[in-house]
Amino acid sequence: MTESFYITAAELAKAGYENTPDELVSSKHMIYSSPATLDFNSPGAKGFGVKRAGLAIPGSVMLLVAPGCCGRNTALLNELGYSERFFYLLLDDTDIVTGRHLTKIPKAVKELCGELDYTPSAVMICITCVDALLGTDMERVCRKCEEAAGVPTVPAYMYALTREKRLPPMTAVRKSVYSLLKPQKRISNECNILGFFAPLYDGCEIYDLLKSAGIKKVHELSRCKTFEEYSELSRANFNIIINPEARYAAQDMEKRLGIPSVELARLYRIDKIRTQYRLLGQAIGVGFDDEK
């Protein structure tokens, strides 16, 4: 499609869901629209894909379990300084058809932890689409890894084929990276910001607004330097979701850790942003002074 296309909301509503024009169905072709373009971050542009995101837990290492062909593109991460934290277990045809990988993964994790001159805080096992067909119970494999190596082990799924589904890889990996948090006493004037794997820029207005509302500490995963700092995320009183891809992780945190969440939409108009901050203030029971 090279021609520009538009449809009014009224026309769209009248046509009904079943008759959504192909131009608006993302699986039919590439879409370029203003907000989508602003949001889009190609993995090829060295943004955060499942592998880099999976390494967000400070002190963790990753074992990529994949046939050689799908592990190759990970070379990019080496240039970003991850070469010391990234390891491979390449699967061959026999591993796949016999299920031999079930025993190989715990052995590899044990060997990996034994070779390192430090104990990693966690091992992320990242497995690719091939596993969608194998049906490996990765939770169980990770338990075996923990028993073998004595290090917490968490699965991350790089299932590119589920990208258009309800639980795409970048949503699932957010749950994985918060899954090692343990329940603890929550502190009323602390909160988390969930959404991205890089911190908001230091001058972002949300920090001042939250500070003016009495929030003493705003946690962000990407600002955690140590596993201890990471562990503090579970003492937050509430989560602020700034990317819908973090919603699933927030729901899991509410279920496991009792931390409720409030979600902010990505907006581009100043008046709407202001209204949204006011609503956030109401939700957490404070009034924001946005006149300064």
Binding site: L134, D137, E139
Partner: peptide, 11 residues
Amino acid sequence: VCGGFAAPIRE
């Protein structure tokens, strides 16, 4: 017969 058919006995 394979991983899929073991899924019903998972946690």
